[in-house]
Amino acid sequence: MSQVRRAAFFDVDETLITAKSMFLFLRLWLAANGDDGTLYRRQADALRATVTQGLPREVGNRAYYRNFAGAPAADVLAAGRAWYADYRRLPEAFVTSCVAALERHRAAGDTVVLVSGSFEACLAPIAEDLGADLVLCSDPQTAPDGTYTGDVGTPMIGAAKTEAVTKAIADLGVAASDCFAYGDHSSDLGMLGAVGHPVVVGDDAVLGDIADKKGWPVLPAAGGRRDDR
């Protein structure tokens, strides 16, 4: 009997890693460019304010990428690799239950896909380290000279995640009912609902209630090293 072809879709921040990659990387990037922490605090507060003000998360996502306007994309990508090389050594860097799930999917021959509002600078080294096959993420735009414009094409959040996952399922030629998705936040609900096997990570109240009602499995969000199980 031939093996059923499946895909497993993973949110990243606070799902596979315990941190918010975008905030950690922004702090590193600004510090490397002379910030004493003042600009980072101002920018981070402004980004958090978009949430407390009830604005769509896509608004904050677009605002985030304006921090890189004029920066050479190659430099940002290199800085992302340096950030992750340090981050992965932290004692509680990874959500070990979810990383273990990813590794089981890899062992089973499933296509592993990362889906995140973060961007290539942060996600490429994570994908390589964890052995992901595909990354669906926000796409900051570049000018002809190779610098970021500060604009982003599609913030990979909410409905955009759902659409990207649905398209990937079609492109991969797999059945949605056979696929898995892992997410930690209520904004991942559409992505989780697009597959036959949704899995909640952590204790988000909205997702927790839905998981209780629908019988979805819930993984703990405890952090550890990659070799912790």
Results as ranks from 00 to 15, higher is better:
28 L>W: 05
94 F>K: 10
150 G>N: 01
72 P>I: 09
123 L>H: 09
58 E>W: 10
95 V>D: 13
197 H>C: 10
8 A>L: 07
72 P>D: 04
44 A>Q: 11
144 P>S: 01
52 T>D: 14
228 D>W: 05
155 P>G: 05
134 L>C: 04
219 L>T: 02
113 V>T: 13
162 T>R: 13
3 Q>R: 15
15 T>M: 03
77 L>R: 13
121 A>K: 11
170 A>V: 11
17 I>N: 10
45 D>A: 15
60 G>M: 07
65 Y>K: 04
92 E>M: 12
45 D>H: 10
225 R>K: 02
143 A>V: 02
151 D>V: 09
95 V>L: 14
115 V>Q: 09
186 S>W: 15
102 L>M: 04
185 H>M: 12
35 D>M: 02
6 R>D: 11
6 R>G: 11
173 G>D: 06
96 T>G: 10
225 R>G: 06
79 A>Y: 01
125 P>A: 11
87 Y>S: 01
16 L>M: 11
193 G>R: 09
223 G>T: 00
24 L>A: 09
81 R>D: 15
213 K>V: 07
77 L>G: 08
118 S>F: 05
188 D>F: 04
15 T>Y: 08
173 G>E: 00
33 N>Q: 09
219 L>A: 07
162 T>P: 08
197 H>V: 15
21 S>F: 12
174 V>K: 07
104 R>G: 11
173 G>T: 03
166 T>E: 15
10 F>E: 09
179 C>Y: 08
127 A>H: 10
197 H>W: 04
60 G>F: 06
152 V>A: 06
59 V>T: 15
115 V>T: 05
72 P>M: 02
19 A>E: 15
155 P>T: 01
210 I>W: 02
10 F>S: 07
186 S>V: 13
209 D>S: 14
175 A>E: 13
111 T>S: 03
219 L>R: 10
178 D>T: 12
4 V>I: 15
4 V>A: 15
31 A>I: 08
125 P>I: 08
115 V>G: 14
196 G>K: 10
81 R>P: 00
69 A>D: 00
68 F>K: 06
75 D>R: 12
96 T>H: 05
172 L>D: 06
184 D>F: 11
168 A>S: 12
30 L>P: 01
215 G>Q: 06
35 D>F: 01
200 V>F: 02
116 S>T: 13
198 P>Q: 00
108 A>F: 08
170 A>N: 06
30 L>D: 04
5 R>Q: 07
214 K>G: 03
99 V>H: 01
49 A>E: 12
139 D>H: 01
182 Y>Q: 08
127 A>M: 12
74 A>Q: 07
158 G>D: 06
180 F>D: 08
75 D>G: 04
21 S>D: 12
71 A>K: 05
147 T>Q: 04
167 K>H: 13
31 A>N: 03
73 A>F: 05
156 M>K: 05
201 V>L: 11
226 R>F: 09
205 A>L: 12
101 A>D: 11
86 D>S: 14
49 A>I: 00
183 G>M: 10
88 R>A: 04
181 A>L: 09
36 D>M: 08
226 R>S: 01
128 E>D: 13
158 G>S: 02
168 A>N: 05
126 I>H: 05
61 N>V: 13
176 A>K: 05
54 G>D: 09
173 G>F: 04
215 G>H: 05
111 T>P: 05
93 A>F: 13
192 L>A: 04
229 R>Q: 13
114 L>M: 10
221 A>N: 11
91 P>R: 08
7 A>D: 04
200 V>Q: 04
162 T>Y: 01
108 A>M: 08
72 P>N: 00
